[in-house]
Amino acid sequence: MSRLEILKTYKIYIGGQFPRTESGRFYSPLDKKGKPLGNICLSSRKDVRNAIVAARKAFGSWSERAAFNRGQILYRIAEMLEGRKEQFIAELIQQGSTKKNAEEEVNLSIERTVYYAGWCDKYQQVLSSVNPVASSHFNFSVLEPTGVVGILAPQNTSLIGLVSIMLPVICGGNTCVVIASENLPLCAVTFAEVLNSSDVPGGVVNILTGTNKELNETLSTHMDVNAIVYGGDDLEALKQIQENSVLNVKRVFSYSKDWNKADSQDLYMISDTQEIKTTWHPIENIGGSSSSY
């Protein structure tokens, strides 16, 4: 006798918790055959706000955490992804992928996670500098995370796009609020479950589902978001985001890459959401007068 299956409730992910949207609304994106994928949370402006508050709260300890430790956590994400591989493949197939493509996408997502995990304690060394100023000062420039980053995940993939643009952001010590692909949201929700079981502190990554138009607006106008990473391909939407970003001089980066390609990953995606901080300190010159007398 067949057993009655327990259906999954798709939730959003804020501050390490899995609430339903505070609005109580949902939407039902359809698969290729026109069948609803499920009841997906239609997040509201308030959900975005809550997510940003959670991200800001998590920023201090995440950005100050040892780079090695951030790396460990990213490696852990890869391990958890590996363990959930079958679920992701099934969801990708449910959202229209072929089995082969789905497998490749999940595999690449895992490889990419390992790639950025490895960068966590290295990008600083490659991109920092000691600057030979002409005065008697020691001067060095280091990278620091920009802060809270709003991420609009690519629309045309469910998993690899989100992974590809989110990882460089948190690898660099930022925290983020991710708006998942509107029509392919399933993997984003499952990915939140992976994060939750990977020692990623609550609030470092917050994932919302819903209509992009509504959420983009709130995210890009919010005064406590420092940067926006745009993975979509709607130039009008991008322009609107850029205009909204003026409110608090947000940095806006947009990427249009084929995320399914193995080399759609690099160091400079990490440095985009980094600030350069330069510090000066005098060097005492002992051993006699160095003045003109």
Binding site: A134, S135, H137, E275, K277, T278, W280, H281
Partner: peptide
């Protein structure tokens, strides 16, 4: 949270130093 930190000095500029 600032791009330039002057420790025990202030308002120093140099071509090699990002600002």
């Amino acid at each position: 949270r600032a791009g330039v930190i002057w420790a025990n000095t202030y308002n120093k500029f140099d071509p090699t130093s990002p600002f």
